[in-house]
Design a binder for these strands. Structure first.
Length: 830
RNA sequence: GCCCGGGUGACGGAAUAGGUAGACGUAGGGGACUUAAAAUCCCCGGCCCUAAACAGGCGUGCGGGUUCGAUUCCCGCCUCGGGCACCA
């Protein structure tokens, strides 16, 4: 595309960007007179590939939002930084023998340049970088506080190990049992690692979701991830052996139907039963096989259940007092609940399948029953009474599994109770209430180089000793080779002079912890650092924290729902508990940005060759056009394909505004016409509402409609300037340029936001729609507020209406003031 | 399997305390300007019927229902996207 005429976006955009920088127009100012507004983007990992047009979408939105807030008189904090620890830089280092720091700095410079040409209002003086020792000092400091409170602990449990990345991973880093990053199948590997006790915060993480203005889908994801379930723990005595088996169940009401127990193969009690088990060889073999299977095999195998009977071990059902067999089976997971279940095949599909295979008794203890209607309901809809009866009979005799609630039977004194009543009473008699979570503690150590060193020293005599806070940061040392050792130790283990140190506690010989923190560490608290980035004595000062308080608007991808957004909430709550922050939640309001897909409908990626570079778009169309286009594409949170043709529409709009601006400023100033005033104030109202609600596409549409009206009528300089202000957050350069040629003083970006005046919003005339039997048959203009009688009288005479009502009986006349009339008619009965 | 979202012209999408479906934009068609093209400006633009216009009919994934009136509310399906998943 050629640039023609006077509108030279390159020149205008570059010169304003320079001026804003000189004037420090976007510098953050704390002010007690102003309300504050903290607007934040999820900060990027500066990858070597640079930005594609999808990346700026969220950044443009926060830019619009923060500019809007500034014009509304708020003290705005809108910063940017870099989440720069992580595997890609490290892998690049291994391949090319370049220190990650070098490539990271280079990538940051490129990112910053690419971002800057889009014209954002970031206050770069508050830029942060998670790999700065001055920054990660505080990441390490938080770890020490967690350690001191017993929330960071060493564990030797088997963890998720990625054989390709050669590091342990947290549950959150997996996707279908594969490494989220490289797709390798994860294996379970027992090794020493650091774990954070996020499960202590499970309830608070769950409950406080209620207080947040977040998309429901993200809240639901977090609820699923935390996975709270209420139930009971029940002890089953083992005949002739001391230790009972404790099971967790959400259906204590089915206790009378528990006909066997199942333990996870890894369950500790299995070893305790060893001397009683007569088929130990078989048991051991099954346990070995289970251990060999990776997560995929164990779960994907799905349907066909396997297990081994523990011969010689018999449990006693505390309700029926009957002896029941005990199995180990890999469909029971050691890490969930108590690692043991009571199997109720009549009321659990999995137990039912297992019982069928091993020929175990199925005893129905809950019959389908509807207490509201006092009858046996249809279990399956759309079937005949006979079939329904047949299903009912199968359930009663244990030939079919029924997982629903109903009425207790075969349950002694509990017979006749509803499932909910039975649940409570049986729990009271035979067990105790218990709540479990799917959420597991956060495996926090990585056996890699490019991360924050965990500030711990291992002393031969004192054991695990935290690095004194005064010695922070523990700086990441230079290494010869960045490659993981593969032995479960990080490359840091090879640096003797770094590893060997003195114990801060006894002064004896100590060794540094060589594991590093996961990528999520630095991003779990970074928003706080923007409040006070230069502070060397605290991660944030009390005053600054008190002022900025919490992030008012947080924007980023939905893929962080169960990773970053859970970790950060966890750390924030911990920092609240130790008095560092004064709020319970870090992000009050969250909007998630939909992806910009490639023109082919696939995810934009080098691999598909569908990447569009924003730099080129800015060169060709200008930053303002790019910004307007990305916001105009569709609803902000929706995934939409890029279309280079369509950007023309935004470019044309910008050019038309330019022409209008030139016309208005060059001609003699005139009064705005009523149409222009009405269009302007409708736009003010709409744009104001829509920016607040993140509905940028309709805001831009309203601006287009307004400008289209202006082109056909007279607009004063003053009113056109108001229009420019509405457009300013979206297209900051062209509006500043035109503003400077009008009467505007100073920068348009700090001019007070326009207010819609009610008198221009309502017109005296309204259009009344005339319907006959609900179908539109005509319309007419009348003055606002006409009575029903007058309107109906007029409506009958409107052209094209008569033939629908003449000779018919009017049954009813529906009237909606200032909107419509509807004649309900029918034929004359003869 | 369970839980969330969605399905509207050729395309991106507007409009839901029930009240003119298709705003705005892209692509397309026609015209003006031009030696010509690009750009710009004006007009058309859901489908059927019609030479065309008018009139009429149909139309918001499918099938029912409530209502004077349903894209919007209710019931039952189909389908796409996402989250969780042998979680007891």
């Amino acid at each position: 595309m050629q640039t023609r005429g006077e509108y030279d976006h390159k020149k205008i955009e570059r010169s304003w960007q320079e001026k804003w920088k000189e004037q420090e127009l976007y510098k953050t100012h704390e002010s007690d007179e102003k309300e504050k507004c903290f607007v934040l983007d999820m900060f990027p990992y500066p990858s070597g590939e640079g930005l594609h047009v999808g990346h700026p979408k969220g950044y443009i939105a926060t830019d619009i939002y923060s500019r809007f807030q500034r014009m509304n008189g708020k003290a705005v904090l809108h910063p940017m930084g870099w989440d720069a620890f992580g595997l890609p830089a490290e892998n690049y280092a291994i391949k090319n023998k370049v220190h990650p720091k070098v490539s990271v700095d280079k990538n940051i410079a490129r990112y910053k340049e690419q971002l800057s040409i889009i014209g954002p209002d970031y206050d770069w003086s508050r830029e942060i970088n998670t790999t700065d020792p001055g920054y990660y000092k505080w990441t390490q400091w938080i770890f020490l506080q967690l350690f001191k409170k017993g929330l960071a602990y060493e564990s030797n449990e088997p963890i998720n190990w990625c054989p390709s990345c050669q590091t342990g991973l947290a549950n959150e880093d997996l996707e279908d049992g594969k490494c989220e990053r490289c797709g390798s199948v994860i294996v379970k590997k027992p090794m020493r690692q650091w774990v954070l006790k996020i499960t202590d915060y499970a309830d608070r993480l769950l409950n406080d979701l209620e207080t947040l203005d977040w998309p429901e889908s993200i809240k639901v994801s977090q609820r699923n991830w935390i996975g709270r379930s209420e139930g009971a723990e029940i002890d089953f005595e083992i005949s002739g052996i001391g230790d009972p088996v404790t099971v967790f169940t959400t259906r204590p009401d089915t206790l009378f139907g528990a006909t066997y127990l199942v333990l996870a193969p890894e369950h500790k009690l299995v070893d305790g039963f060893k001397k009683n088990i007569t088929n130990w060889g078989e048991v051991e073999k099954y346990r070995e096989e289970t251990k060999k299977k990776d997560e995929i095999e164990r779960t994907a195998e799905g349907k066909e259940k396997t297990g081994v009977l523990l011969q010689g071990v018999r449990a006693i059902n505390p309700a029926t007092k009957k002896e029941i067999p005990v199995y180990i089976a890999d469909y029971v997971l050691d890490h969930y609940g108590t690692g043991a279940i009571m199997a109720v095949p009549a009321h659990d599909k999995r137990d039912f399948d297992f019982a069928l295979k091993y020929d175990l008794p199925v005893i129905c203890v809950v019959e389908p029953y509807d207490f509201d209607q006092n009858l046996v309901p249809r279990i399956v809809s759309d079937i005949s009474d006979e079939d329904s009866q047949k299903i009912y009979e199968e359930i009663i005799v244990g030939k079919r599994c029924f997982e629903g609630k109903g009425r207790s039977i075969h349950s002694n004194i509990y017979d006749g109770l509803s499932s909910d009543e039975a649940r409570g009473k049986i729990t009271d008699s035979f067990g105790r209430k218990k709540i479990t979570y799917k959420l597991r503690d956060w495996v926090f150590s990585r056996q890699r180089y490019w991360g924050e060193p965990i500030p711990i020293i291992h002393c031969e005599s004192c054991g695990v000793v935290p690095v004194p806070e005064n010695d922070l940061p523990v700086v990441l040392p230079e290494v010869e080779s960045y490659a993981p050792t593969g032995t479960g130790e990080s490359p840091l283990a090879d640096i003797d002079e770094w590893v060997t140190t003195t114990c801060p506690s006894c002064g004896g010989k100590g060794k540094r912890e060589t594991n590093t923190m996961p990528q999520w560490a630095g991003s779990s608290w970074y928003y706080l650092r923007y409040m006070d980035p230069q502070n060397t004595s605290a991660l944030v000062s009390r005053e600054r924290e008190a002022y900025w308080n919490t992030v008012d608007m947080y924007v980023g991808g939905a893929e962080h729902a169960t990773r970053h957004l859970i970790y950060a909430r966890f750390w924030h709550k911990f920092l609240y508990d130790i008095g560092v922050v004064s709020t319970l939640e870090p992000f009050t309001r969250l909007q998630h940005v939909g992806l910009i897909m490639g023109e082919d409908g696939r995810k934009m990626s080098k691999r598909y060759g569908n990447v569009v570079n924003p730099d080129e778009i800015v060169v060709t169309y200008g930053a303002d056009s790019l910004r307007v286009y990305e916001m105009f594409m569709g609803p902000f949170d929706q995934n939409i394909s890029w279309n280079t043709d369509s950007i023309m529409g935004s470019r044309r709009f910008i050019e038309r505004v330019w022409k209008m601006g030139k016309k208005v400023s060059s001609e003699k100033d005139s009064q705005s016409s009523p149409e222009a005033l009405s269009a302007l104030h409708v736009a003010i109202k709409k744009v104001t509402e829509d920016i607040s609600a993140f509905k940028f596409n309709t805001a831009i549409s309203a601006l287009m409609v307004c400008n289209n009206t202006f082109e056909k009528t007279n607009v004063s300089k003053k009113d056109f300037s108001l229009f420019l202000q509405l457009l300013a957050p979206f297209a900051p350069h062209i509006t500043e340029e035109l503003w400077s040629g009008m009467e505007g003083e100073g920068s348009i970006h700090v001019a007070p936001w326009p207010r819609a005046e009610e008198k221009y919003l309502v017109s005296d005339n309204v259009t009344i729609v005339i319907q006959v039997n609900g179908k539109m048959r005509g319309e007419m203009q009348v003055t606002r507020g006409e009575t029903k009688e007058n309107i109906i009288g007029l409506a009958r005479k409107v052209e094209g209406v008569g033939k629908w009502i003449d000779g018919k009986v009017i049954v009813k006349e529906v009237f909606v003031p200032d909107k419509l009339v509807n004649f309900v008619v029918k034929e004359h009965s003869t």
